[in-house]
Amino acid sequence: MRATPGELDAATGRAVPIVRAERLGKQVASPEGRLTILEDIDLELAPGEQLAIVGASGSGKSTLLGLLAGLDLPTQGSVWLDGTELSTLDEDGRARLRAGRVGFVFQSFQLLPGLTAIENVMLPLELAGRADAAALAQETLARVGLAARARHYPAQLSGGEQQRVALARAFAPQPAILFADEPTGNLDRRTGETVVGLLFELNRELGTTLVLVTHDAGLAAHCNRQLTLDAGRLVVGAPS
């Protein structure tokens, strides 16, 4: 079932996608009965592509991001991440698949308050057992312009600085794919622009595949592909 993404698929002659979703659906139980959050989503993403998922609040963007990253399981359909079908793996199997390959950036930064900036960046590197965690983290912090703030705690940093630390944390392990959930949602426009600039620079330098969820059309425009979700269905930009 495993195929190496980026190589040409012998059958179709097309590049093997790094992310693929087929007839993806998600329903949850609610007091009013079963609630459909996502329905019939098909998409493919080649290595190095940048995909923006846009839509209004409650359209199911974040749910889709969670399903594509293997943080949650669909009620219908399948997801292949880096060539592996996620539903064949258990929770720990999916975690192992993410290890070192998948990076995340969140709207609320999700920095650990008890750790300094550099320790936050080191965390995924340490968890992956990288011996050069400290050096690499310092280097990446310098790359986002925060070398001087390495020993500061999140509470001592501004929102923009916190998100830059989060970017450093996401890119330091050089993941194959990065999932970003409203990365500028908690920032003012100016700071948001700086962070977005940095995000796309790093993305280009490292050739990372990017999946970005946003309601900001300006941010989405930076990506080479856009998908629009409306009430759980794709309305524009279905698979090419």
Binding site: A69, L71, E91, D92, A95, R96, L97, R98, A99, G100, R101, V102, F104, Q110, L112, L123, P124, L127, A128
Partner: peptide, 15 residues
């Protein structure tokens, strides 16, 4: 809980 959720995101198994 947040720290653990992050760790799980970064690929750390339950074990």
């Amino acid at each position: 809980r947040d720290a653990v959720a992050l760790m799980r995101c970064f690929g750390v198994t339950q074990g």
